[in-house]
Computed example of a mutant assay.
Amino acid sequence: MELDKLDRRILHELQRDGAITNTELAERVGLSATPCARRVKRMQDEGLIMGQTIVLSAAALGLKLSALVQVSMDRHTPDRFERFESEILKHPEVIECLLITGQSADYQLKVVVPDMDYYQEFLLNTLTRIEGVADVHSSFIMRKVLDTTALPLMHLT
């Protein structure tokens, strides 16, 4: 899909504020409302814009502990991976699950929980009991230096 300067500006503004009205968006990018809405609709139809979300404050909700968890599987077979992935989807504490390479682990999870007691319960009674999990290493996030969902747009033409 070809993107021009106005498309990139629209995407930039939508990443900054997904709840912006079409009228305000059009004003910020220098278009009238109808052409702006058409461009947004085209980018949605093309799959470039996948949806809108609201970002919640984990701390304000009492979710004060975040962990990056590396999980190694006992066997590298499709059925093991499918089983693990279907099980991990059942746990809302896991907000990200990545199949990775270049590490000794097979998966990296981002887990958000209220406290260490909750994490210990999740680790011992849930994660390590998933069939095929051979090893788990946890790292705890002390401070977020950068936390964004915005994608870089400078390379788009």
Results as ranks from 00 to 15, higher is better:
Q70I: 00
T77I: 04
M154W: 14
D115Q: 09
R80V: 11
V111P: 11
R129S: 02
L98I: 08
L25Q: 08
M1I: 06
R28H: 10
V145K: 06
N22W: 00
T21F: 02
D79I: 05
L98T: 05
Y119H: 14
L14I: 10
L6M: 04
K90S: 13
L153E: 11
L146E: 13
R80F: 04
A59I: 09
Q70H: 14
E121S: 09
M142P: 00
P35A: 08
L48A: 02
M43T: 08
V94H: 03
K41R: 14
L6R: 12
L31K: 09
L56K: 05
D117S: 14
C36Y: 04
S104N: 07
M154T: 15
H76R: 13
D115V: 05
L124F: 02
D79T: 12
I10P: 07
K5C: 01
H137G: 00
R83H: 15
G30K: 02
N22E: 07
D4Y: 09
T149V: 02
K144E: 15
F122R: 05
H12A: 13
T34R: 12
V40S: 06
T23M: 11
G102W: 08
S104E: 14
D7N: 09
Q52C: 01
Q52D: 02
D4T: 05
T23R: 15
E2L: 12
S86R: 15
T34P: 05
G51M: 06
C36K: 08
E27N: 08
D147R: 03
A134P: 01
V29R: 09
E131G: 07
E87F: 00
A26K: 02
G30P: 02
M50T: 14
Y107C: 02
G132C: 01
L14H: 09
R83V: 00
L89G: 13
V69F: 06
E96H: 12
L14K: 10
Y119C: 02
L124A: 09
A58N: 09
L56D: 02
A60S: 08
D79A: 08
S72T: 11
T157N: 12
